[in-house]
């Protein structure tokens, strides 16, 4: 296996329109790799764990960058960098949950180059899979992480099906909590997918983490006005505060009236192959205040149904504790 540092011989396309990018991707079929900021891509290619022979660089499509106000909220171009998302005054004012999540990704260097679209479209960090082993996700018939000797401290406790890899995206949890809509263009046609349906678990498709397929270009992420200015809470627990992926994270948004929660979204990251929405907790907190008492009484619902692996039992209480912290306000 190549040693993390040399890129393969590869072609590079630098289209200036989404239509062209999409057409090139379809023409290349499996040989093409749609390139956003490259912070996940180059690792795959340097390791030879993926065998794309051409990159389709979205960096040359100007229309994909930038943040604008729309009739119903805010639209963020998919190629907008994580740094911009984390610092943009409009996002910080209305969707601080997303600004905080974007500011917690990796390191300053990676946030400056990495994009919001790339962060949600990135592949899992399961090291067996990234090593290029022929596991379920890679089209094989075994999961190395879920084996007696498997190192699975970082893996899923919910929603696994043969594959136990988790979604590594910090912004994905925030986008699901904010009911964001992903705008996907393929050729001339555009479809709009709710963030919660954008991410796909292994029971649905074991080789793809999102709904993106050949020729699909994620062009923008729309944040609806409904959650603008909502109370929010974001926390990412990782072994290291920087350049590390979440062990468990939580993104929560609350709309309150007087003291009572009217509507809530609580989403955990790194516990499942997709951002994991805590439906039971959300239902249980309606009509109650954000308080210690509410926190204590509903936290147990967070990890219901969890099936920990050998080394990740800690994730269940960690989820519950993060729910408590989100609800204490």
């Amino acid at each position: 296996m190549a040693a993390h540092d040399v890129m393969p011989d590869i072609e590079l396309f630098q289209p200036v329109t989404v239509e062209d990018a999409s057409a090139i991707a379809r023409r290349l079929e499996g040989r093409g790799w749609v390139l956003a900021g490259g912070q996940d891509t180059y690792g795959w290619l340097k390791d030879r764990a993926k065998t794309a022979t051409a990159m389709i660089d979205l960096g040359t499509i100007e229309a994909l960058s930038g943040i604008e106000e729309t009739a119903d909220g805010v639209r963020i171009g998919a190629m907008t960098t994580l740094r911009t998302v984390s610092r943009d005054p409009l996002i910080r004012e209305r969707y601080a949950l997303l600004a905080e999540a974007a500011g917690k990704v990796a390191s300053p260097q990676i946030r400056n180059q990495g994009t919001l679209g790339g962060n949600v479209a990135q592949d899992t960090r399961c090291w067996y899979y990234r090593r290029g082993l022929s596991c379920y996700r890679a089209g094989g018939n075994i999961c190395y992480a879920d084996s007696p000797e498997g190192m699975n401290r970082e893996h899923a406790i919910l929603g696994a099906s043969r594959c136990v890899a988790v979604s590594p995206s910090d912004t994905g949890t925030a986008l699901v909590a904010l009911d964001a809509v992903m705008v996907i263009q393929n050729g001339g046609s555009v479809r709009r997918v709710p963030a919660a349906k954008f991410f796909v678990g292994p029971a649905v498709n074991i080789t793809h983490m999102t709904v993106l397929r050949e020729g699909d270009i994620l062009t923008a992420i729309e944040l609806p006005a409904a959650w603008a200015g909502a109370e929010h809470y974001f926390e990412k627990v990782a072994d290291r505060d920087v350049w590390d992926f979440a062990l468990v994270s939580i993104a929560a948004a609350f709309r309150t009236s007087g003291n009572a929660i009217e509507d809530a979204r609580l989403v955990c990251g790194a516990v499942s192959c997709v951002p994991h929405r805590l439906n039971a907790v959300e239902r249980a907190v309606i009509g109650r205040p954000r308080s210690e008492e509410t926190a204590e009484s509903v936290a147990g619902l967070a990890s219901q149904g969890a099936k920990p692996l050998n080394f990740n039992h800690f994730k269940a209480p960690l989820m519950e504790n993060l729910v408590k912290r989100a609800l204490r306000s």
Partner: peptide, 30 residues
């Protein structure tokens, strides 16, 4: 310098248009 080639170490940091990046994770063509 090339430390890791994966963006962990920052030894290859340069500034592109005012933004700090890992030059091992940026293409020359970019």
């Amino acid at each position: 310098k090339e430390g890791c080639g994966t963006g962990d170490c920052g030894a290859c940091s340069v500034i592109v248009d005012g933004q700090l990046v890992c030059s091992c994770l940026v293409l020359g063509a970019e």
